[in-house]
Each structure stands twice: as C-alpha cells, then as structure tokens.
Design a protein around this nucleic acid. Structure first.
Length: 103
DNA sequence: AAGTTGACTTTCG
DNA sequence: TCGAAAGCCAACT
C-alpha cells in the first residue's frame, strides 16, 4: 500500500496547494502537472496523509467534486470563501470554469 | 523485479 | 450528462 511518499514529493504538493488563493481551486491533475508530473493519484495520497496542514478543499477532481468522504466539509469552506458553485439536484459541484486556478 | 493500491483522469458507449 | 473501462504515476510489499 501506498504509504507516505518522500518528503520532497509531499512538500512540493503542499507548497502548490498552499499557494492556491481563497475562492479558487485546482484539480489533482493540475497540481501534479505544476510539479512537472502527472501523478494525480499520488497527489491525492499526499493530501490524505499530510493534507491536514493545507487548504485541501481547494484541491478537487476534474469533475468539480471534492474528495470522496469530504464533500460536506469542503462545501462549508467553499461557502465561506465564496467559491463559485454549481448547485445540482442532490448535491453540488464547484464551477471549475471560473474557480480553476492556473499556477 | 512483479504485483497491488490509491482524496485521479480521460475516453467511450 | 452519466457510468464503466482503461490508462498513469509514485510508493509499498
């Protein structure tokens, strides 16, 4: 199982995530791409382990949905920061078109 | 060295 | 617009 990746990888991810301005979001793929890699999954793994110290809710999937199991908490943050949301029938999803932050 | 796993992405029907 | 399948990357056993 994938446990904690080397600190270099972790720090790189945390640095990028911490650089995302309030009200904006980035997809895992974008974060990975910013690091010069496409390890979207590895990024998610890092968030799951060390994401406690960074605004993890600003990192979401390409679908505009936050990580599985954290949709509720993320929503609270989005509403507090004024992140553009698209309200759906039984849920919501971030308006990537406007909230996406390019590094 | 080969197989498994994961807060993913993209393509196809 | 949605669901299933395949693809990819980094790390662990």
């Amino acid at each position: 199982m994938a446990r904690r990746p080397p600190e270099d990888f972790v720090e790189a991810v945390l640095d990028i995530v911490a650089a995302i301005p309030p009200g904006a979001v980035m997809t895992y793929g974008d974060v990975a791409a910013t690091m010069g890699s496409r390890a979207a999954r590895a990024v998610g793994n890092v968030m799951a382990l060390s994401g406690s110290d960074v605004p993890w809710w600003r990192v979401i999937r390409s679908s505009g949905l936050p990580p599985i199991g954290h949709e509720d908490r993320a929503l609270a943050h989005y509403r507090a920061e004024g992140t553009p949301l698209r309200e759906s029938a039984d849920g919501y999803r971030v308006d990537l078109r406007r909230a996406r932050h390019l590094a």
